[in-house]
Amino acid sequence: MTTTPRSPRLLLLTTVLLAVAGLALLGMPHGQEPSAPAPSPATQATTGGASAAAEPPAGKPTAPAAATEPSTPSTPSAVESALPLHGEGAAGDQVVQRNLAAAWPADLPAADERVLLAAGRALLRADATGVGRTQWPTIFGDSGQTVAPAFATARFRIQAAIARRDHSPHTAVVHLVWAGTDRGGTFTDLRITDWHFTRTTTTKGASTWTPQPRT
């Protein structure tokens, strides 16, 4: 178990205060009761807010008490918030990505993860903004050309994305967190969308990840 080292500045202030108190007691006439000095901020920090000692009997000044070891200073919590504040912007995206990856550890080969992430991002962008819908005819069909996009391309941003197995080695899900401004001008972030994929094998033995229509 380690302890926090004492602050040199705090120890120096405590030593000076104790020396002054000792000189005041030595210079006081014999038999006169010393008045209790008001606790200074440094003394309070040193004693950690402990209650004052009992007043010494009249005519018998005592030597100043030894400095109490300062309590361990409180430090800001190292644990980050699970999610940044709404509206924080791109500055909070790294926090979202880091916490998302930590909550759901990687379980796919790196090559598969890269393919799935690229496909998941493209699908989300096509679904939200209409850009690239023709690349996915089995997902959007004819409606990809007739349904107006719900979000403006300029205000669309993917904040975080991970690809993980979905109950078996042959199925996967891309989990995306994103932000965007809808056609009414309302901006919202930390939206969540999942795209599911299945692994298919071609006649030549190559495998590909095929996206599944959203239900």
Rank of each mutant, 00 (worst) to 15 (best):
A82V: 09
L83W: 15
L83R: 10
L83Y: 15
P84R: 10
P84K: 10
P84M: 04
P84C: 10
H86C: 10
G87P: 03
A90I: 11
A90G: 05
A90W: 07
G92W: 01
G92R: 00
D93Q: 05
D93F: 03
D93K: 04
V95K: 12
V95F: 05
V96H: 08
Q97E: 14
Q97T: 01
Q97W: 02
R98L: 10
R98Y: 07
R98S: 15
R98I: 12
N99P: 02
L100G: 05
L100I: 00
L100E: 04
A102V: 06
A103H: 10
A103E: 07
W104N: 14
P105N: 02
P105F: 05
A106M: 08
A106G: 09
A106I: 07
D107Q: 09
L108C: 04
L108T: 03
L108A: 03
P109W: 03
P109Q: 06
A110C: 06
A110N: 13
A111H: 14
A111L: 10
A111C: 07
A111T: 13
D112L: 10
E113L: 07
R114V: 09
R114L: 13
V115F: 13
V115A: 15
L116M: 02
L116E: 04
L117T: 07
L117D: 13
L117A: 07
L117V: 08
L117W: 09
A118E: 15
A118Q: 14
A119P: 03
G120S: 00
G120I: 02
G120N: 02
R121M: 08
R121C: 08
R121G: 12
A122L: 04
L123V: 03
L124K: 04
R125Q: 12
R125D: 08
A126E: 11
A126H: 07
A126D: 05
D127S: 13
A128W: 05
A128R: 11
A128T: 00
T129I: 00
T129D: 07
G130L: 00
G130I: 00
G130Q: 08
V131D: 14
G132D: 05
G132C: 03
G132S: 11
G132T: 00
R133G: 02
R133C: 07
T134N: 15
T134F: 10
T134A: 15
T134P: 13
W136E: 04
W136K: 04
W136G: 03
W136V: 06
T138L: 15
I139C: 06
F140M: 07
F140P: 12
F140L: 09
G141W: 11
G141F: 06
G141R: 06
D142S: 10
S143A: 15
G144S: 05
G144C: 04
G144L: 05
Q145R: 15
T146C: 03
V147T: 12
V147C: 04
P149F: 11
P149I: 01
P149M: 08
A150T: 05
A150S: 09
F151Q: 01
F151K: 02
F151M: 12
A152L: 12
T153E: 15
T153M: 10
T153R: 06
A154F: 02
R155W: 06
R155S: 12
F156R: 02
F156N: 01
F156G: 01
F156M: 00
R157F: 02
I158N: 00
I158C: 01
I158V: 11
I158W: 00
Q159C: 00
